[in-house]
Design a protein around this nucleic acid. Sequence first.
DNA 1: AAACTATACGAACGATCGTATTATTAGTTT
DNA 2: AAACTAATAATACGATCGTTCGTATAGTTT
Lengths: 211, 211
Amino acid sequence: MDTTRVDGRLVRGDQTRRAVLRRAVDIASVDGLEGLSIGRLAKDLEISKSGLFAHFGSKEELQLATVRAARRIYAEAVVVPALAVPAGLARVWTLSECWLDYSRRRVFPGGCFFAKTSHEFGARPGVVRDYLAEVNAEWMGLVEQTATEAVELGELAADPPALAFELNAFYDSANLASLLRADHDTIYGQARTSIRTRLDSAAPAGVTRPW
Amino acid sequence: MDTTRVDGRLVRGDQTRRAVLRRAVDIASVDGLEGLSIGRLAKDLEISKSGLFAHFGSKEELQLATVRAARRIYAEAVVVPALAVPAGLARVWTLSECWLDYSRRRVFPGGCFFAKTSHEFGARPGVVRDYLAEVNAEWMGLVEQTATEAVELGELAADPPALAFELNAFYDSANLASLLRADHDTIYGQARTSIRTRLDSAAPAGVTRPW
DNA sequence: AAACTATACGAACGATCGTATTATTAGTTT
DNA sequence: AAACTAATAATACGATCGTTCGTATAGTTT
């Protein structure tokens, strides 16, 4: 048996699955994980409904896989670039910039995938909601951790949970406003200013501002 | 013709309509305005699907009527109590307290109706989205106006649009967090603290704090 | 080449969706 | 009492939903 040689059938399946999920996250960011229908997805990709279905076994599994795929894209767009910057105030600032950019650039056409789907499933019990809650906790943990590092480095005098709550509030609020209003410059500018002001007032004198 | 006497048929229709919308806002706050289906609504209320449908003429009209009904409930729960307090810092604070209470008390079972539905329709063109955007603008206008009054009275030194953006961000973020996490005391406490701190740092020395 | 496996397809299932048509019932006006 | 009106109901439509089943095809293993 050759372990280096890959099974062409599995490769084909993987590619299909990948294509499905790439389309699925986009649809879900606009129409939600319920609006994401198997028939529509199949028609969009010009594959059979039953073939697509077989990849996931149930609608719920498709939804979970879609959230997982969105998490990867989100991590790549927001988390990775922020972690490339040294810990401290600079990383807090970069994380904020990356998030606003992620929303503004429409990495997902419907704005932040998680704002959308968390609101969709937040009040509905089930595994999808539970996973979304888990991803949210993971995300808030990261923001808080980033803040904690800045505090420990003496670059910020703040309560990390409070700062994380407030920064995240500014992110999400800018995202929602951008869905309802056309003046994106004003909106993201406002969020940026609020974040900068908040960080500025928490950074001790003498600390270099990254903005 | 007697103008004082009411038409019993119209009264009956009004009552039905009222009952439908009362149920509709609750369903929509949990399952969204798309999850709000006419058949389900009719079954819940034990009336005929076609009879219910006749009241609105289309799904879209039902959705619009549902948003209008939610707006009235929202105004009653949040706006009216805040306007009962004198303009200024006290009113800004009361508005915040009322909002958090509105979310926490679950005036709508799925949390804030407008956070839910605005995220649902934000990326989807149509009259429902447009109306939701209008209600949002109206709401943000009110928050900003309330802040402006406090500034004009010398009770707050702040940029009203910025303050409105930040306060509203804290509201919505607490609401979403409460959907995903169980520790509501922590969440709403955090939001309250963030709001108080923000207002405190913007209120000139000597101004009486309402908290 | 034969046996086997993974992926994809076509067709159909019962359920539910929004909507239209037609009939029935309750209430008002003449 | 008759004519009229508004609200409600019964039934059915075509479309789409998630799902199941049987089969064909592409690729691997023996």
